[in-house]
Design a protein around this nucleic acid. Structure first.
Length: 922
DNA sequence: CGATCCCGCCACATT
DNA sequence: AATGTGGCGGGATCG
């Protein structure tokens, strides 16, 4: 945004002042790199990057430069660090600056269309001018966090392959970007709040990309709804009439909830220590800020309001100074979010006057959609997106989470037990541990709530729970270890989480070579579960079916089937035995090599409830999920290597992602699955599962598989449909077995199930395959839950180009590039219906470089639309904003909106509410 | 002059 | 104790 603008002028203007010195110093300290020239190309890195990364996959290497643009694009200098450093050292600070500018611009350009145009010019200018001098020195803008963030983001693929893990060295990045480490923390903290990155170790972060973004957002939305509910909606702008006007805005509720999030950590028993404040702030603030957007009908949030809300949460009294500080922080966050193309600056003129505000431009409906930035960001086509990352189209994930029930039970439920398998991304950080803490805290919270309940009761509870959940989720992801125990449980949602992970991860992929595919195990036991089903379970796989259905990929020559249980079941954790059992086998079947290895571990994991297991499970899941991907690329087994070795760390990235998914999803679905499911599920699920299977899957092969899944490879039967249908290039395979009806059954439970079909790419695709989603709902199925019923295939393929692979998910189809084109919503609808479970499970597939030929595709699971109709429970009303109302009643927020100058006042009001809540909570 | 928000001190956390 | 993190707010810039 701004960045663009700045350019020339800024450059021109020279700035003296401390800055200069500071810079120099900084520069010195850090080495900055200059790759100035590099910049030029940069923008894109994405694709290239991805690829490169992909190749690299492995973890370690990437660390720094993940991407590197280098390869393809230009030959530039980039080489990895060495060169850079050299350059840097050599280069004077000035150089750096220029470079920076350039770089920045580029990205920016991409990202933002608007201004962009000049980029070239800038460069030109810069060169000329700058070179000579450093005048460029940067104007503030150049140094702005937004630009910096763009640069940062430009370095990593939005949708990295799951397998790969990209580690980010703060020092490197700082030096490369030519900024102080402090700035990098600002960026990373925000990114971390959205799970785009996770901290692995000191100075080390793992880049996850946007794969989970939708889920994360969904989770936040849910949490936000609970917490803030309507507040936002109204506040921002106009309050829509609907709500109660005044009230909505404020609501205290949020506060209370919020706290939980934050608070959790602290209280936590365990390691809480770490959590401390740190965690709270920027990260939390960022999440809350995002929640406000998601909750807001208008999707516009003014800084004042946001600041007030945030302040309230934390504090009762609002000082003006505090307010100012908060606003400063919000600007920081906003800059990062802007770089992510999730928001854009706007001015709201309200009663009082025009206030600075930000509008959410990211994905709104999670259910089906993915994130994507529609508008602005994506300036330049694909590349831009890539760079930005943000936008990826493909993902569709929705999650299914929908509903949770939070409250009451949540405490009780613990089922989650280990639910989350955490991934462990961060071994180290205690902080992250919050999970555990959280959990505990959650419980505490719950208690508190109870007390409070009196006042808010349910509402609050809900809210909290969610929040808690969310965090927990997050945390869970992070901390693998902790999770197992208690963790999340409390919240229903959590449980889901737990489950999910597994399931998702799970799909086995089978290579054609391998002949049989597996169905996966995973399919979903969950599905079975009526209630839970939705949630997610799946993992188990058992059922094969369809429900969760996996995708099949057929690479040109060989096929791969991916099965996913999309859903995860929570169960995984403890393992419900079922699942676990299956997976391994399945895996084995699928990929002997990889799978086995992993599977073994994984398998075990299931058994083991503990952390270890969990991780394992995740890994598995991950692995599985990954696998598919990897399959795609045949070789990479995905994580395997790492995983094996370092489960936690290695996987972390992947895991995290998955975890997120899971987690996220869980919240949504929670209810269903959650409690019941978790462990209990096993039995039930199995039963159901079996039943379902029976019903659902007629298909012999599958059944076998399913049931037997563990051991046998089954062969699924499919019907091959020629392309005629309109899918020009694709071929579809449908499973013979499935009868709609059968499916239907499943569907009912699993709404999603659909017929499994496989799409085979036409020759063109050769390299890539497609993925199918199962989901078609059969015509039949009604959905018990209400879920969605028939979903039809949603395949809309916008452009199915022959070449581009398309994925059809239950929910949606994704086309690689197209993403944007696809309406999320539209797709969503259709998608939505599919079972919720799926949603999660499916992670979206993504192609990193879509275009690229071959590689690429990764598929993941498709998600279902969160909205899935299914869930009875909490389903939020669909994605719409409508849901805001939610809780309803809660409190009415009054008008906190007003920000006016003094927030204080407003704050006060808000605060009060907050206070109340908070106090109560406390 | 208000809006933005960079910069870096310094406290706290982690190693 | 050193180093990593990151809260926080002064004050520079921008518009």
């Amino acid at each position: 945004m701004e960045a663009n603008v700045l350019s020339l002028r800024d450059l021109a203007a020279v700035r003296p002042s401390r800055r200069g010195r500071a810079e120099t110093e900084a520069a010195q300290k850090e080495n900055i790199l200059d790759r100035s020239r590099m910049a030029p190309k940069t923008p894109i890195k994405n694709d290239p990057v991805d690829l490169s990364k992909q190749k690299g996959c492995t973890p370690d290497r990437n660390p720094m430069t993940p991407v590197k643009l280098i390869d393809r694009p230009q030959a530039d200098p980039w080489t990895p660090t060495a060169n850079l450093k050299m350059l840097i050292s050599a280069a004077s600070p000035d150089m750096r600056d220029r470079e920076k500018k350039k770089e920045l611009f580029r990205p920016i350009e991409n990202s933002e269309q608007n201004d962009i145009p000049d980029s070239l010019q800038y460069d030109m200018v810069d060169d000329g001018t700058v070179d000579e001098f450093e005048k460029q020195r940067p104007s503030r803008k150049q140094k702005s966090l937004g630009l910096l963030c763009q640069k940062f983001l430009a370095r990593y693929p939005s949708y990295p392959l799951s397998t790969e893990k990209t580690t980010i060295s703060l020092d490197e990045v700082a030096s490369i970007l030519g900024v102080g480490r402090r700035r990098i923390y600002d960026i990373v903290n925000v990114l971390e709040s959205l799970h785009l990155v996770s901290r692995v170790a000191k100075n080390q972060y793992c880049w996850h990309g946007r794969h989970n973004l939708s889920q994360t957002l969904q989770t936040l939305q849910e949490a936000g709804e609970l917490q803030y509910g309507e507040l936002v909606t109204s506040q921002c702008k106009e309050q829509d009439t609907e709500y109660k006007s005044g009230e909505q805005k404020k609501e205290t509720v949020p506060d209370s909830q919020d706290r939980p999030l934050l608070d959790f950590a602290e209280p936590d028993c365990t390691s809480a220590s770490a959590n401390s404040r740190k965690d709270k702030s920027l990260r939390i603030m960022s999440q809350k800020f995002v929640m406000l957007f998601l909750v807001s009908k208008t999707k516009i949030v003014t800084l004042d309001i946001a600041a007030k809300i945030l302040i309230e949460e934390n504090q009762d009294t609002v000082d003006y100074s505090k307010f100012k500080t908060k606003v400063r922080r919000l600007y920081d966050i906003a800059n990062v979010l802007t770089s992510l193309c999730l928001i854009k600056k706007v001015h709201v003129t309200e009663e009082r006057g025009r206030k600075p505000a930000f509008k959410w431009i990211g994905p709104v409906d999670f259910p089906g959609k993915t994130d994507e930035p529609r508008g602005h960001c994506p300036t330049s086509g694909p590349p831009a997106e890539a760079r930005r990352g943000a936008c990826a189209p493909y993902q569709i994930c929705a999650t299914g989470k929908q509903r949770f029930t939070r409250h009451a039970s949540f405490n009780t439920a613990q089922p989650c037990e280990g639910t989350k398998r955490k991934v462990s991304s961060e071994p180290n950080s205690p902080n992250r541990e919050r999970q555990a803490c959280i959990v505990n805290s959650d419980e505490y919270c719950s208690k508190m709530i109870n007390l409070a309940t009196v006042c808010r009761q349910k509402i609050e509870e809900d809210t909290r729970s969610k929040p808690c959940a969310t965090e927990a989720i997050f945390d869970a992801v992070r901390n693998p270890s902790e999770t197992s125990p208690i963790s999340l449980l409390p919240v229903p949602g959590d449980s889901d989480f737990c489950a999910n992970p597994l399931s998702q991860a799970v799909f086995p992929v089978v290579q054609a070579d391998m002949p049989s595919l597996l169905l996966p195990k995973g399919v979903s036991s969950q599905a079975l579960h009526p209630s839970s089903a939705a949630a997610s379970k799946t993992e188990n796989g058992k059922p094969p079916l369809l429900p969760s259905q996996p995708f099949l990929c057929f690479p040109s020559s060989s096929f791969f089937m991916l099965c996913g249980g999309l859903q995860e079941n929570l169960s995984r954790e403890s393992g419900s035995a079922e699942e676990k059992a299956l997976p391994p086998e399945a895996q084995g079947a699928v990929h002997p090599a990889h799978c086995q290895k992993r599977s073994s571990h994984r398998c075990t994991s299931p058994s083991a409830p503990t952390d270890d297991e969990e991780p394992a499970a995740k890994k598995q899941m991950i692995g599985q999920s990954d696998v598919p991907i990897s399959l795609v690329v045949p070789k990479k087994p995905v994580e395997s290597p790492e995983a094996d070795t370092a489960p936690e760390s290695g996987y972390a990235s992947a895991v995290h992602l998955e975890a997120f998914h899971l987690d996220l999803s869980s919240p949504a679905a929670p209810e269903t699955a959650d409690k019941t499911s978790t462990k209990p599920l096993d039995s039930q699920e199995q039963e159901k599962w079996s039943q379902n299977k029976d019903h659902d899957e007629p298909s012999p092969g599958k059944d076998h598989i399913c049931k037997g899944n563990a051991s046998q490879p089954f062969v699924p039967q499919y019907l091959y449909v020629q392309p005629a249908a309109g899918l020009s290039s694709f071929n579809f395979l449908f499973s013979a077995n499935q009868a709609p009806s059968a499916i239907g059954l499943a569907a009912s439970q699993l709404p999603s199930l659909s017929i499994p079909c496989v799409m085979v790419p036409s020759a063109a695709l050769a390299s890539f395959p497609l993925v199918c989603s199962p989901a078609i709902p059969g015509p039949l199925s009604p959905v018990p839950d209400g879920s969605s019923a028939g979903a039809s295939m949603n395949i809309s393929m916008p452009g199915l180009a022959s070449t581009t692979p398309v994925f059809i998910g239950t929910t949606a189809v994704v086309t690689p590039n197209a993403s944007p084109s696809v309406d999320p919503q539209q797709t969503a609808h259709p998608a939505a219906h599919p079972r919720p479970m799926l949603a999660r499970s499916c992670s979206a597939v993504k192609l990193d470089s879509p275009v690229c030929v071959g590689h690429p595709v990764t598929l993941l699971k498709l998600q279902q639309p969160s909205s899935t109709p299914v869930t009875p429970k909490s389903v939020r009303p669909a994605r719409h904003e409508a849901f805001f109302k939610t809780p309803g009643s809660l409190g009415d927020p009054g008008a906190w909106k007003k920000s006016e100058g003094n927030q204080t006042r407003s704050a006060s009001s808000v605060q009060r509410r907050l206070e109340i809540s908070s106090t109560s909570t406390d």
